[in-house]
């Protein structure tokens, strides 16, 4: 059973390495352990999205029952997106759950995740706070997603406003991560963020 899994992963790994998208540096995959059951994926933030220019690392765990069950995938790079938990990196995507098909491969999974970054589905959220902001305050969502991509995924876009507010809270004695999270959750309202951090 795990024979199929190992054989498939080796072929799929080669498929990703040789594919056009890899040549364009849009997707990448690396082996983490020698028995191919854990991999490290990487996707580039799609153009014309707040994630543009960022590099997002994924943890990919292959179950022994692969390809009958989907791989377990999680974002290691912190990301602000309605369908991805801003705390754990857990992903809500149908093909990684009940819409998985045995013909899908590492390449199609990585490309689907990249497509998810370009087209969020706020009605099927993984992170309720992010989804609410996405629907009710699109500008704050975009600023936040861009700021997170810049801080955590090395995206070049710079938003001095967000960084200044984070620094303001850091000066008050809060940690940088907690300050960023509080500000993001409260659409960069410093007063509300401080209130949240104090409670």
């Amino acid at each position: 059973m795990s024979n199929i899994a190992a054989a498939r992963i080796q072929r799929e790994f080669k498929e990703v390495v040789k594919c056009d998208e890899a040549a364009k540096c849009a997707i990448k995959v690396e082996m983490v352990d020698s028995d191919c059951m854990e991999l490290r994926g990487e996707i580039a933030g799609p153009p014309d999205t707040p994630y543009e220019g960022g590099n997002f690392i994924l943890e990919i765990k292959i179950p022994e029952t692969y390809p009958f069950n989907p791989p377990k995938v999680r974002f290691v790079t912190k990301i602000w997106h309605p369908n991805i938990s801003s705390k754990t990196g857990a992903i809500c995507l149908d093909i990684l759950k009940d819409q998985w098909a045995a013909a899908m491969t590492l390449r199609t999974v990585l490309l689907s995740l990249q497509a998810l970054l370009a087209a969020a589905e706020p009605d099927d959220p993984q992170d309720a706070v992010v989804a609410k902001q996405y629907k009710e305050d699109p500008q704050a969502f975009e600023d936040t997603a861009r700021h997170w991509a810049q801080v955590y995924a090395q995206a070049p876009c710079n938003n001095p406003g967000c960084s200044a507010k984070v620094n303001q809270l850091v000066d008050m004695g809060f940690t940088e991560t907690a300050s960023r999270e509080a500000l993001s959750m409260h659409s960069w309202d410093v007063e509300k963020a401080v209130e949240y951090l104090m409670s």
Partner: peptide, 10 residues
Amino acid sequence: KNRECVICMS
């Protein structure tokens, strides 16, 4: 037409 089983990819 199919030459490969897409499940085991062999």
